[in-house]
Every structure is written in structure tokens, then in C-alpha cells.
């Protein structure tokens, strides 16, 4: 476990020192802040963060792959992965440690939007429904965790971080729009229902409504575990390929 935490700490440090992280965080805040200010100053605006959090989730579809694309591919390209693999660290510790580091940093970006919540609370004379707000943030964090795990998986497949990022964005977009298959195949079709279940968007938006469903939590956790397991296997395959 200490190896995992060491890698996590190293990764957090790398993110803090990386201009890419700060550029992403700033871009995220500019975009979300702009949309927030437009929505909040509209006549008849309601004390409801949910539409905004839905939008923040959509932005994460691009931010998370950009954060995770270099995690393993850069190590492969620079040859430092070989060093890691010959050191007394398990492959899974490398994969999970890097993911955890990225997740902590993504959580920092998500936490920055609490500034918007504070502004809204100040203007909400009749208070806010805080339950759905908390559920939305939980959904946002779980979505971020799943997106980063997919990013780690694609990053393990190639040493080119641009390719890894592109693959990750494509994968998450496919997963995001997968529930549309239900509309094409009909809601009573077993394949349509399976596609809908496998899609990210439906699971995420349930949180935004203020519903914490065990199926949604299980799905997000499964995406994380499945993706990181596959990434570990891919990393391990370098030993016998």
C-alpha cells in the first residue's frame, strides 16, 4: 500500500508542477464560471445547481482524458516505465497509484466549483435543496473516476499521449451516447436495455436528480475496476510480448 501511496504522491506532485493541469483547471473555471454567471443572472433564475452540474459533467468528458492521457504513455515513451517495472512495485500499484493521483487532482478541479455554490447560496433567499446538490457532486466525482480510469486504460495502450487522449475521448463519447441505442432498438429490446445500462450518461444524470441508486454507483465502480484491471494486464503483457 505504501508503494501505491508513494506513486500517488509523486503523481500529485507531477500534476502540480505541470502547466497542463493549471491550464485545464483555468479553462474549466472560465467555461463553468461564464455559463454559471449567464444562468444565474437570467430573470426568473432558480436556486438550482443541477443544470450546471449536468454541464460540468459533460465538460469532464474532455478534461479527464486530457488529464489522464500522459499517465502511462509518457512513461512508456520516455522509458521510465521500464525502471518502474524492474523496481519492487507491482503493476497494479503503478496503475492504481497513477489513477488515484489523477483522481485527487480532478477532485480539486471539481471542488473549485463550490465557489459557484457559495454564490448561489448567498442569492437564494428561500434556501437550496442541498440533497440533490450533494448527490450531484457524488455523481460528478464518480463520473470523473470512471473517465480517468478509461483514460489510464487508453494510456496503457500506446506511448503516444495524443493518441491515448484521442482514444480516451472517443471511448467516453461512445459510452456517453450508448443509451441512444435504446431509442433505436426500442426500450423493450434486451440489447437496447443492455446498451442503455452500459452507457455513462443515464447513470450520471440520475445523481443529478437527487437519486443515489446502487446500480449507478455499482456501474461507475465497475468501470473503474474493469478499466484499471485491463490497464494492469496490458502493462503486464510487456513482460512476455
Amino acid at each position: 500500500m505504501s508503494n501505491l501511496l508513494t506513486i500517488t504522491r509523486r503523481e500529485i506532485g507531477a500534476f502540480f508542477g505541470s502547466p497542463v493541469f493549471w491550464v485545464l483547471a483555468t479553462a474549466f473555471m472560465v467555461f463553468s464560471g461564464f455559463v454559471f454567471s449567464i444562468i444565474i443572472t437570467r430573470p426568473g433564475a432558480q436556486a438550482d445547481m443541477l443544470p450546471l452540474l449536468g454541464l460540468y459533467g459533460t465538460v469532464l468528458l474532455f478534461v479527464a482524458p486530457l488529464m489522464s492521457m500522459r499517465l502511462l504513455s509518457e512513461e512508456q515513451r520516455s522509458g521510465t516505465l521500464e525502471l518502474l517495472m524492474t523496481s519492487p512495485i507491482d503493476d497494479w500499484q503503478v496503475v492504481w497509484g497513477k489513477w488515484l493521483g489523477a483522481f485527487v487532482m480532478l477532485s480539486v478541479i471539481v471542488a473549485l466549483t463550490l465557489f459557484h455554490v457559495a454564490v448561489m447560496l448567498r442569492l437564494a433567499t428561500e434556501g437550496m435543496d442541498l440533497g440533490p446538490l450533494a448527490a450531484s457532486y457524488l455523481g460528478l466525482l464518480l463520473l470523473g473516476a470512471a473517465l480517468l480510469a478509461i483514460g489510464v486504460l487508453t494510456s496503457s495502450m500506446t506511448q503516444n499521449q495524443v493518441v491515448a487522449g484521442f482514444l480516451a475521448v472517443m471511448t467516453v463519447l461512445i459510452l456517453w451516447f450508448l443509451p441512444l441505442g435504446k431509442d433505436l432498438l426500442g426500450s423493450e429490446s434486451a440489447v437496447g436495455a443492455t446498451l442503455a445500462y452500459m452507457g455513462l450518461s443515464d447513470h450520471y444524470f440520475n445523481f443529478g436528480q437527487g437519486l443515489i441508486d446502487s446500480r449507478d454507483v455499482l456501474y461507475m465502480v465497475s468501470v473503474v475496476v474493469g478499466s484499471l484491471f485491463l490497464a494492469t494486464r496490458i502493462l503486464e503483457s510487456r513482460r512476455w510480448r
Binding site: L130, G131, G210, I212, S214, R215, L218
Partner: peptide, 15 residues
């Protein structure tokens, strides 16, 4: 996940 869809719990945190 399949078993999770058969038996699940839902927490409604809305006011």
C-alpha cells in the same frame, strides 16, 4: 452488475 440490477436500493435525497 447483472445481479445489482435485480436487487437494488435507491436513496431519494431530495427535499
Amino acid at each position: 452488475n447483472y445481479l445489482g440490477t435485480l436487487r437494488y436500493a435507491r436513496l431519494d435525497v431530495t427535499e
